[in-house]
Design a binder for these strands. Structure first.
Lengths: 144, 144
DNA sequence: TAGATATGTTACACTATATGTAACAAATAA
DNA sequence: TTATTTGTTACATATAGTGTAACATATCTA
């Protein structure tokens, strides 16, 4: 799964959990709402559980419950939770054997440039809350 | 070839052409310098030719010559020349059939967010010239 | 004009990553 | 004890990236 689909799928699920708070929703219910495969959702949600963004309850009448205030839950926090390897990470090196010596100097330059870009993207995401997305989409959060 | 490797390979080639200006350099000479496969280079350079960033001369003693002042040639211009489909374009939609209705509203939101990010990245690249990269790498441009 | 050289483009095998789905162990509520 | 749900692994398929080769076309030089 790519960075962007993981992030958008996570947000779809979280918006739904915010809407129906505090009722736990199973992966298949979230799948019905979002159109995302339930197994795929469980993979994403299990990462959010590890970061204490949602809680999971096993067994009958179990499911997932949002555990962070949508007003202070930032996109960057969701992004970092679902992205082990940096999503906007960009390759720069050539895989051919006879790489010129000068090449590594360029690679360092681009690695640093792309890392700057990564930081700017994360700063942008830090300014966006789950609540602001919900409102923009036209969903009413029931959190707290 | 990914967006980032295309861009960095293009810049490597252009820095070299700037260094040896106004002598034409063949794809195999550029390959020796950059470590990038000559055939791959020709693919990238032919795109730069179409945007009049470099000129190509066929036949003996031919090759590629830089045709833009490194001081005014921006990274964004190079990036647009080598990227037909936007590099930092990010997928958002699910390919499963039973997509929920609400899903398209989210997809529009993320498409617009990622397009904002794209614009910010291009703005950042517009502030970086080929000349500034050369100097940072430690290369002396012979342009003009 | 002939031959050598270089670009521009297409093709292809190989690898890696993404995608969608299924299966099942472990946990837990009823 | 049984049904349900998460969490994880596995896998087949599809899509995209990589490295290289081949060759038609153009053009310079002798």
């Amino acid at each position: 799964m790519s960075a962007s689909t993981k992030l958008s799928n996570a947000v779809k699920a979280l918006c739904f959990l915010s809407e129906v708070y505090p009722r736990p929703k199973s992966s298949s219910e979230i799948s019905d709402y979002t159109g995302v495969n339930a197994s795929k959702l469980r993979k994403i949600l299990s990462m959010l559980v590890k970061q204490n963004i949602v809680e999971s309850i096993k067994g009958s009448a179990g499911g997932f419950i949002l555990r962070k205030d949508p007003k202070s839950l930032h996109l960057q926090e969701i992004y970092c939770a679902v992205e082990e390897q940096k999503a906007f990470h960009l390759d720069v090196s050539n895989k051919n054997g006879n790489a010129a010596k000068i090449s590594s100097t360029y690679n360092e330059y681009f690695l640093s440039l792309f890392s700057d870009i990564q930081i700017e993207i994360e700063e942008k995401m830090r300014r966006i809350t789950l609540d602001s997305i919900s409102r923009e989409i036209g969903i009413t959060s029931s959190y707290k």
